[in-house]
Every structure is written in C-alpha cells, then in structure tokens.
Amino acid sequence: MTDKTENADPLIIAGHRFASRLIVGTARFSSRQVMLDALVASGAEVVTASIRRISLEGYSESLVDLVGGHYRLLPNTAGCATVKDAVLTAQLARESLETDWVKLELIGDRETLYPDVAELIQAAEQLVGEGFTVLPYCTDDPVVCRRLADVGCAAVMPLGSPIGSGMGICNPYNLELLCERSAVPVILDAGVGTASDAALAMELGCAAVMVNTAIAQANDPVNMARAMGEAVAAGRRARLAGRIPRRAYGQPSSPQLGLIGSGS
C-alpha cells in the first residue's frame, strides 16, 4: 500500500496532495456494501456525489455518514442544463458538504450528455469568483480546456467518450495534445470501460482518471475497482518511464552476430 506521506509522485490539485490518481463515482452500485468495498479496493481518496432534492416522504442513510469521514467528497452538478441551476447546485453543495470543491457539469444535450461549453465557461468563471475550486467536465478540446484554465479552474475533466458509454478514449491523439498543452491537471472523465482505458489515459499524460459506471456496473465491481487503481498506477509509472517510439518495421531484440548457419 502507498504511504500517503511518502508518495514521491502525488497528484496535486489546488494545492492538495493525493496519493491515488483515481477518482471514483458512487452511483449505480448494486448495494451500499458493494460500493463501500469497491471504494476501499480502488484506493481512491476522492469520491463524487450528487446534490438532489430530499424526499419529503422520509429519507434513507446519508452518503455523508457512509463515506464522509474516509474520503474527500467531490459534489457534482450533474444534470444541470443552465448556468443558474449549476451555480445554485454548487452553492447548495458547498453548504451541504462544507467544501469549496465542485465538479462542474453543464449538460447541453440529453442524448449524448455532451457539455454545453459556452455555458460551462460562464458558470466556471462565476464560481471561481465566488471562491470555488472548480473542476469542470468538458469536451476534449484544447481550446476549451485552455479557456477553462484561463478563468481559474483548478483542473479540467475532458471526456474520453460519452458518460456511461464505456467506449474508452475515442481520440487519444487529442487527449495527449491536450495534456501536453494544459496549464492545469487533466483528469480524464467519462467513457472509461475497462482498466486498459484508464492506463492509456495515464500513459497519454493525464494527471488522474475519474471512473464510475465501469466499476459500478462490472460483473465484479470490487475487483474492477482494484484493477482500475492498479491500471492508473501502472499507466502513470509507464508515462514517467517513457515509452519507446513507434516504428513501422520490426527490429530484432536478440543479438544478430553468431547465428548458427551463417557464413563466417
């Protein structure tokens, strides 16, 4: 296990250090116990939550009581479609969870769940002005990411493919370019289907990966959570180690001299 205090390669977001580079969502698990076991297996320190209307017919066990003491809860504005709703949700989240951090989501299309980047940048700027640490879910567009960093976002969270699609990273070249050029940490959000997707994101230069559905809906969520944690760590290590260049033709790895049957 990684010792948080001795990690030589921590993830740093807005001055906060994390040993794990995996962020896990808490939705769509078959049971609370499976979710809790998966969170432990993942090694994640940051987990996401949504903010929703309380049911007036009575309400069940609180997510805060379940995981609040063990993880940093990162509230999202999932489902919000206007700047007004996203900002109010963020403000309610701050009051509810006593955190300035918000995963800002502003959905522009209900079918693809693509973000509305024009509204997103506007909401991000307003929330940064109100003292929030804003982590926006955005498209994998280097210019959009730059605009979000320019208005003061602490990180950017581009999608690899649509939320919940499991399609992985549809445009790895774009993601790598974006990571190279981003002034703030890039956290791959959305689209991860299995562990290799998470490893690829890290190899391409992402600072962290956010996963929910691929863990929660796996046949064995606890093992998938562990696999994601290991993949993120392996991908990061490979990134730091530096991959060999690609080449179109073969190059033997064994010595070419002293082959039997050769002329001299």
């Binding site: 969502g25 769509r28 939550a49 949504s50 805060v64 999202n76 999932a78 989240a93 956010m210």
Partner: peptide
C-alpha cells in the same frame, strides 16, 4: 424553497 442533500453520483 429547495431542500437538498448529497446522494450517490458520478
């Protein structure tokens, strides 16, 4: 009036 609390989310 809106009354909210945290729920599971991604």
């Amino acid at each position: 009036v809106e009354i909210v609390k945290p729920f599971a989310g991604g």
